[in-house]
Amino acid sequence: MTNLHFAVKARDRSDGPVLFVVLGSGEDELATEPHQHARGQLFGSLRGLVNVELDDGAWIVPAIHAVWIPPHHKHGGTTHGPFHGWSVYVAESACDNLPRQPCTLRTSGLLREAVLRASQWPFAPLNGQMSHLAEVILDEIRTLPVEPLGLPFPREPRLQRIARALIAHPADDRDLERWAVWASVSSRTLSRRFVAETGFHFTAWRQRARLMRSLEMLAAGMPVTAIALDLGYSTASAYIALFRRTFGETPAAYRLRLQP
């Protein structure tokens, strides 16, 4: 595992609410150690899944969402698979009317384009156009809908091995007993601890992991049938039915809402 590295594209500015914007990418699994800072931070990905670790748990976040971390909240992160992402740092003084607790936001086309534009700012004080764009970014953080679509990640090391394997290969159809043998843990302990640490039974957690991956695949434009087969569903109908029960609409309808 390598350290998550972001190339700074705009310097820290004391004269504006958006201190700097960074972009980063990598083909391998990337990680940051738990840390905290006085800045607020909004981060998301254009490609790949991010495991965000907070004091009260860890969450898997797909590419169509962003995570807001208010100032002084300890956090860390790990990517799963190839990753291309961005991060916006906000002055503490500009965070008063932004969400007070860490949350997952639905990324809008406007936010994504504003962040990419801000990443190209030169090393200079904010001019009028830059200040306006900074306010757009803050307004998007303030008003975008909060999405409870994260996936809690277990903390126990053996359970984490299983969870990471399922994230990497969501179509793996091994049952709980076979996973328990693979991770050198009893099936009873695996079942009990998974519920205690994630709030989900093992089977439900795996189903949700597949659905979370399917959100990214939908955003990438993959056909629904191809998504279903790639993720190990027996038929496209089975995937569509589970998606509708979980999110209240079909994958096709959900994809339409992802369009800018």
Rank of each mutant, 00 (worst) to 15 (best):
H72C: 01
V61D: 10
W68D: 00
G85R: 01
H65A: 15
H65P: 00
A66T: 04
H80P: 07
V52S: 08
A66N: 03
F83C: 14
D55Q: 03
D55N: 03
V50F: 07
A63K: 11
G77N: 01
G81H: 06
D55G: 03
G81Q: 03
N51K: 02
A58Q: 11
F83S: 02
I64G: 03
G77V: 03
A63L: 14
G81A: 09
L54Y: 09
P82Q: 14
V52M: 14
G57P: 03
H72R: 07
T79L: 03
H65N: 15
W59L: 15
D55A: 04
H84L: 06
P70R: 11
N51D: 15
H72K: 05
A66P: 01
V61Q: 13
H72L: 10
N51E: 15
H72I: 00
I69W: 01
D55Y: 00
G76F: 02
P82Y: 08
G81V: 07
H80M: 12
L54E: 05
G81Y: 04
V67W: 01
V50H: 09
I60T: 08
H72F: 09
H65Q: 11
V61C: 13
W68R: 15
E53Q: 04
V61E: 06
D56F: 03
G76I: 04
V61T: 08
H75K: 11
A63V: 06
H84K: 11
V52Y: 08
I60E: 14
D56C: 02
G81W: 07
P70E: 12
P70M: 13
P62A: 11
V50D: 12
P62E: 10
A63C: 15
V50G: 06
V61I: 12
G77H: 01
T79A: 06
F83Y: 15
H80Q: 11
P70N: 08
P62V: 11
T79C: 13
A66D: 07
F83G: 08
L54F: 09
W68N: 07
G85W: 10
A66R: 12
N51A: 14
L54C: 04
E53I: 04
I64Y: 11
H84N: 12
T79E: 11
A66Y: 00
G81L: 08
P70D: 08
V52Q: 04
H72G: 00
H72D: 06
H65K: 00
T78E: 14
I69G: 04
H73F: 04
T78P: 02
D56S: 01
A66I: 08
G77A: 08
P71F: 13
G85T: 14
K74W: 05
A58Y: 05
H84A: 10
P82I: 07
P82S: 09
P82K: 14
E53N: 07
P71C: 13
H84T: 05
E53P: 00
H65I: 00
A66E: 05
H73A: 02
